[in-house]
Amino acid sequence: MVGIGQFDFNLFIKILPDLARGALVTLKFSSLSILFGLIIGTIFGVFRIIKNPILPKIAAAYVELIRGTPLLVQIMIVYYGLPAAGINLPPEVAGVLALSINSGAYIAEIIRAGIQSVPKGQMDAARSLGMTYFQAMRYVILPQAFRNIFPALGNEFIALIKDSSLLSVIAIAELTRTGMQIYAVTFNAWTPLLGVAMFYLMMTLPLSKLVERFQRRIGGHESP
């Protein structure tokens, strides 16, 4: 890279719409991924604690595999590696897939901790009233687990918004890539970088405020 350049206010104003579009793409990818990640994470989080000879092992292996490798590598494996196995995915699909699988592993751990934070008596009470294991999970355990882990999930979403910048390597025009493209055209890095950082903050700050509010709320009344 040549010089980082001066901050150029006129340029800044001019690129705002582009950056906003990039931020929307970032938001779209991270929202979709947290949604799928929640589904994956709930399934594997329940697998981790279920009484079964194999499911907890499969879930543990998945979590270790994902947590032990960089997200960047995971993205590239899904996008460049899967075609070698005969699976060709458009970058958008590969991106959401990689991010979902990644966040799913972290969410699985959060959910497992959340389930374990619910007192054992809740399951006893639910089963004693004739609920199946599945009904007890669905109507009694998971709702309480989610309430307890809402802040952790919020933090995961914040992390995902930032991590989605790695999708720039597979040419997805999210916020970071948009900034880099502006740099490539204008040879001014400072201005778009500041803009990019500003847009990330605009997404993450309200979320972290929300998480903070919720944390205080839960602190107010604990389950018995």
């Binding site: 007192p119 008596g121 639910a126 004739g130 389950s223 018995p224």
Partner: peptide
Amino acid sequence: LNKIRQRIGIVFQQFNLFSH
């Protein structure tokens, strides 16, 4: 057992009401 348990009520020391 889910059917049978409907016929047997149990109340616990720690209440175990669903807190949500």
